[in-house]
Design a protein around this nucleic acid. Sequence first.
DNA 1: CTCATATGTATGTCCATGCAACAATCCCGT
DNA 2: ACGGGATTGTTGCATGGACATACATATGAG
Lengths: 152, 152
Amino acid sequence: MDIHMRDIARQEFLFSMSKRSDAWLKLVQAVGQIEVAVGKAMQEKHRLGLSEYRALQVLARSPDSELRMQELAAYLGLNQSSISRLVERLERAELTVRDLCPDDKRGVYTVLTETGRARLQGAQADYGKALDSAIKRYGCEDLLSAKLVASP
Amino acid sequence: MDIHMRDIARQEFLFSMSKRSDAWLKLVQAVGQIEVAVGKAMQEKHRLGLSEYRALQVLARSPDSELRMQELAAYLGLNQSSISRLVERLERAELTVRDLCPDDKRGVYTVLTETGRARLQGAQADYGKALDSAIKRYGCEDLLSAKLVASP
DNA sequence: CTCATATGTATGTCCATGCAACAATCCCGT
DNA sequence: ACGGGATTGTTGCATGGACATACATATGAG
């Protein structure tokens, strides 16, 4: 009997869980597909990957249009090593340049070039439009109003 | 003058756009980090990647616990080739077996094995808990109630 | 029946990312 | 001043996913 009850409880737990995880899966997929859609648009219209575009954007807003690797990593939610390579790509495209940190010789600044700023400005409107239309297409507008908490 | 007005309009457009895209970025990052957290939990507790776990789950719910590659791809929102390799991994772990489709010889069924079903059942509760706690940790609960639309 | 085209899966290759290990530098306690 | 732990960025390697392609089978037009 005891065991039986626990069994029922377990069933219900798993059931409610599965509804939750189904909803989560749908959300994840919708977000993912929107990202892909926007990413493709940016790639073909401006030769910029999503992370690259966002890096430029973050840099443009920063004082002196420069950031250290770690800071960039934090803003973009990426690994240090990913940033290192992302910056490498940006640099190869001449959108940024590396600049040594005078006071901390370990540090490296990534600085937006004028070319980079121009590329960003050329892309901004399209990014907005692509994002907007993809979000609408998936009916995700409500998601944007959610207030989220920082990382743990 | 005309140009000046357009300039202002453009500024405002970009500004409202940037608020929107900031919110989107936060959302994407929150979702991503939750996925990573749950994925790591599943990996270390059950030796199952996120896609693998989900594949098992989808299979378990399907009639005869089997699906064709394409169907699985559709459920998981993955590429056909990704599915091919995902199933390869599942098969190596003996969680599924391939079974030729009798009526369409191009088709291949992926069938859940008993081992696979057992692994899934052992993992389900932990998946639920990990997802739950990660969602709470990021204060994303509201996101789950969003009603989303299918793919375009 | 035969050929052209469509469909289903597998495979080669590429790419972005993560992790672990490393080197250079910083900083703090002694 | 110094020595050891912390921080910062880079690099080798592994992984998962995407795209293009190859191949087998199916289907339909003639």
